[in-house]
Amino acid sequence: MAEFKRPLPEPTPETEHFWEGCRSGELRLQSCDECSKSYFPPRPFCPACGSRNVTVKTASGKATLYSYVINHRPRPDFGDEPHSIAVVELAEGPRMMTNIVDCPQTPEALVLDMPLEVTFEKASDTVSLPKFKPAGA
């Protein structure tokens, strides 16, 4: 059987600032200098107005649980236990995919709109993944 390689992100020049932030324990978003909207995923212009005048900033790390599934199919990289795959809504507005951790992986424990905060999981020497846990956990 072929060895399963965990799918880890490979940064591009346009996303490197985000992954560099994660390595140092910082969730980074970009916002537009013209229309002041925050956006995600990273790109060197504002998807709302097209302006190239954008600034990288540190996000609060606060979010709420927007939607999710609990995967029950075995995954070589995640193990055999059911695990959440979730979309969170950041306090700054954008949404992002993540996993909810430090919490039972059950519908009872994972309640939509519950407050969350970011936590970083070291996945390799160069990659730390932003994950979210119940606020104050």
Partner: peptide, 18 residues
Amino acid sequence: GQFELPYGVTNPPTMFTI
């Protein structure tokens, strides 16, 4: 590949359903 796949969004049952 950078912002969804690493969380286990690898096939329709874990993506379309979100």
